[in-house]
């Protein structure tokens, strides 16, 4: 029997069983290029046609960086409390619960230890999808503990930032997370354990005023928005339109605050090469 011979004649799927093309199978870049999700995934979530770096989260970064996507997650169970009883248009605990359900994440940062091209490394990565990647107690504590792990094992620390800043619903407590994380980084620096800070789109507010800018190496993805004050606030303050490319990774590099910009497809290789130079 010929291999191509159809065994069943005709299309037998009933109309009601026919599947629509599922949503989220295609991605449209800001420049309008259409990419198939599978192709995007195989390309480190960078659009092959226009090099647009799609916003991704900890799941994807861990997959890109850890060998065979194998890693041990640290402090996965930490979740937010409501120390101030914060209510705006919604109660803070309700906001947390709703976001957890929507995103499948416990908070805006995940940390893990594993191997990157055979090198042991601790990576903490923020998730923008969780209340704008805002930094509260959980994010601060997870980063602090991840740095502790790095210190204890004397293995490099990589921080991937993606955040709108401190979490307002934890007010003064979230502000102090800037201090807390910086204290740990001071110890890491004293112990001469390498710290690489990768700034991705967007990295603004309190995160920029603490760990994101304190790397031995500050690096960024192309086109990422990086700044202390948000563009809207600056525009309102100075009463003028902002120049094109203001606060882009390229702008920040030109002004001397980044070591280099790295295409996500070369990220793993470049990080490995750099870290190997230090050993």
């Amino acid at each position: 029997m010929a291999w191509f011979k159809r065994q069943d004649k005709g299309i037998l799927t009933k109309t009601e069983d026919k599947k629509e093309a599922p949503d989220g199978l295609w991605y449209k870049t800001p420049k309008g290029h259409i990419v198939h999700m599978r192709e995007l995934r195989n390309n480190a979530y960078v659009s092959p046609e226009d090099d647009h770096h799609v916003r991704i989260g900890s799941v994807e970064y861990f997959e890109i960086l850890f060998d065979n996507n194998k890693f041990k997650e640290l402090d996965a169970d930490l979740s937010s409390a409501d120390p101030l009883g914060f209510v705006d248009t919604k109660k803070y605990p309700d906001r947390i619960k709703a976001t957890q359900k929507k995103t499948g994440l416990t908070d805006a940062c995940r940390s893990a230890v594993g191997k990157m091209n055979g090198l042991e490394i601790v990576i903490a990565c923020m998730d923008f999808s969780f209340i704008g990647g805002s930094m509260g107690s959980v994010v601060g504590e997870k980063i602090a503990r991840a740095i502790d792990h790095s210190l204890k094992k004397k293995i490099p620390f990589l921080m991937i930032s993606k955040s709108g800043g401190a979490r307002m619903m934890e007010a003064g407590i979230s502000l102090m997370q800037l201090g807390k994380t910086s204290a740990k980084l001071a110890l890491l620096s004293e112990a001469k354990v390498p710290y690489i800070s990768l700034l991705t789109d967007p990295t603004t507010g309190g995160v920029t005023a603490s760990y994101a800018m304190l790397g031995d190496f500050n690096i960024a993805e192309p086109g990422a928005l990086i700044g202390f004050a948000g563009p809207r606030v600056i525009r309102e303050t100075i009463g003028k339109d902002l120049p094109k490319g203001f606060q882009s990774a390229e702008f920040v590099l030109d002004h001397g605050f980044l070591d280099f910009i790295v295409d996500r497809r070369q990220l793993k290789t470049k990080l490995t090469t750099l870290l190997k130079m230090l050993t």
Binding site: A186, A209, G227, F228, I234, F246
Partner: peptide
């Protein structure tokens, strides 16, 4: 901290971050 254009050019975030680390 001043949210101005030149403040961003000269690294407002970095300046504050550096102080936190050094003050410890």
């Amino acid at each position: 901290a001043y949210p101005g254009l030149e403040a961003e050019e000269r690294g407002q975030g970095e300046a504050i971050a550096r102080n936190l680390l050094e003050m410890f």
